[in-house]
Design a protein around this nucleic acid. Sequence first.
DNA 1: CCCTGATTCGC
DNA 2: GCGAATCAGG
Length: 175
Amino acid sequence: MEPAHWPSEHSDALRDYFLKGLSYAEIGRQINARFGTAYTRNAVVGRAKRLGLIVQLRMTSPSIVPVLPSGACLILPHRPALLNLPPKSAMKPAAQVKLRCVGVQPRLVPLVELAAEDCRYPYGGDKDGEEITFCGHPSEPGSSYCTPHARLTRRAGAGSARVSGPVVLRLVSAA
DNA sequence: CCCTGATTCGC
DNA sequence: GCGAATCAGG
C-alpha cells in the first residue's frame, strides 16, 4: 500500500463525520463507502485519537489534583460559544450506509413511488446529483431495509466465516 | 445475541 | 503511525 498515512481527504472526512456526531463504526462505513477503503472502526478510532479529535479526560491522582489552588476559577470570562459536540452517543440518524454489492436486484424505486414497506436502501446516492432510488424490496417488519440490506448494514464480513454451518451439501450419487 | 467505544499491543 | 486484537459497557 502506498500511503501508510491517511490521505487528507480521509482525515477531513473523518473529522467531518466525527464532528457531525456519527459513531466510529458509521464513520468507518461512510468513509469506506465513499473512498472505497476498508477502514475498520478500530482504525477510525485509532486515527481519530492520534489525530487529536478525541479528548480523553486525564484522571490524575485523587490527592494531587491539578485544579487551581484557590477558588479563583469561578467566573468564566466568556462562554466559548457553543462549538458543542453533542454527546457522541446522543444521536443516531442521518447515517445512511452507502451501498456496495449485496447480491440483490434493486428495483431502484424513485422516492415518489417508494412504499412504506419498501426497503429504503439508497442507490446512486454516492454518485452525483442523480436521482436517488431505493432498493424497494419488501423490508422486514420494524426495519427500513430488506433482509440482505439490513444485514449488509451490520456486518459485511460476518458472512465470510459463515461457510460451515447449517447448510450441508449433500452429495447425490450421480447415476 | 447484537451493537458500540476505548485501550493496548504488535507490526 | 497504523490497525488488529482485546477489553469493557449497553
